[in-house]
Amino acid sequence: MAAEHSAARFPVPRIPRCPEGAQGYDVAEVDAFLTRVREALEGPGPSPLEGRAPLLSTHVRATVFSGARGGYRPEAVDEVLDTAEDALAAAEREQVLCLRGPEAWQQHVEALTVLLRGRIERPRAQRFRHPRRSRAQGYSAAHVDVLCERLGARLTDSGPLDPAELRGAVFPPAHGERSYEEQQVDAFLDRAVQLLLALR
C-alpha cells in the first residue's frame, strides 16, 4: 500500500507519557505498531515470505496495548490512532482506484452501505441482539438507536456525522430488553467508521 507524502499524511507527534506511577500504554508496543503504520504507508507492504499480513485501516480500532506504569497517555495514543486509521483508509482507497478503478471502489462503498442500512432500517429496540441473560449489562438501546438514526441521516445527506463521533461514542449501561449486546454494536460501529471514511 504505497502512498506518497505519507509523512505529511500521518505526522506522529511526540506522545506524552503518564506520571511514573500512573498506568498508560506500553511504550514499546505503541512504537512498534506506529512503525508498522508508517511502513504500510511508505512501502509496498510485507512480503508473503515474511509471514505477516498487510496492515489495514480496520486493524487500527482492534489494536489493544498492554498497560504499563509511566507509559504513553491513552488519550494521546488514541488521537494518533485516529489519524493512522484515516491515513490507511485514504491509502487503501487510492490503491483500489489505481489498481481496479472507480467502479470497484463504488461497489465496495455500496456493499458497506447496504450492510449498514439493513441494520439501521430495523425498528427501534430491535436493531441488535439483546443480552442472552436478563441481568447481563449491555448498551442502552435507546441511545444506540439515536446514533443509528444519525448515521441513517448521514447516508441520505440529511445530517452531519463525523467518524470521530462514532469512535468516541459512549452509551449508558442498560439491562434486558432495554439493552443491546455490546460486541454486536461495537462491530457495527467499526463498519460504520469504515464507511464514513470511504465516503470522504
Rank of each mutant, 00 (worst) to 15 (best):
S158I: 04
A28N: 09
L195Y: 06
L166N: 10
R122Q: 14
R17D: 02
R38C: 14
V144P: 14
P163Y: 13
A76T: 08
L197V: 00
P123S: 03
A136D: 11
F65T: 12
E103W: 11
S134I: 09
C18K: 05
V12D: 08
T63R: 15
P123E: 08
Q194F: 03
A125K: 00
H143C: 05
G45E: 09
W105H: 05
A8N: 04
P44T: 10
Y180H: 05
R167A: 10
A111K: 10
L199V: 00
L41F: 13
S140F: 12
S134W: 11
D157I: 01
A164T: 07
L112S: 04
A187T: 14
E85D: 00
F171H: 04
P54G: 05
Q106Y: 09
Q194I: 05
F171S: 09
P160V: 11
E85G: 03
V185L: 11
P13T: 07
S47F: 08
P173K: 02
A28H: 10
A192D: 13
D145M: 14
P48T: 14
R122G: 11
L56E: 06
G138W: 12
R200L: 01
F10V: 03
P46L: 08
A8I: 05
Q184Y: 09
R36F: 09
Q183N: 03
F188W: 15
Q95S: 09
F10P: 02
D162Q: 12
F33E: 04
A7I: 12
L88Y: 00
D82W: 04
R150Y: 05
R132A: 13
H175P: 00
R100D: 12
T83A: 14
R17K: 15
L161H: 05
Q184F: 11
F128C: 12
G67V: 13
L81H: 09
L151S: 05
A125P: 00
A53Q: 14
R124S: 08
F65Y: 15
A142N: 10
A22M: 12
E165C: 10
L199Y: 04
P11F: 07
T63E: 14
R93Y: 08
D162K: 02
S134C: 00
P172N: 09
Q107Y: 00
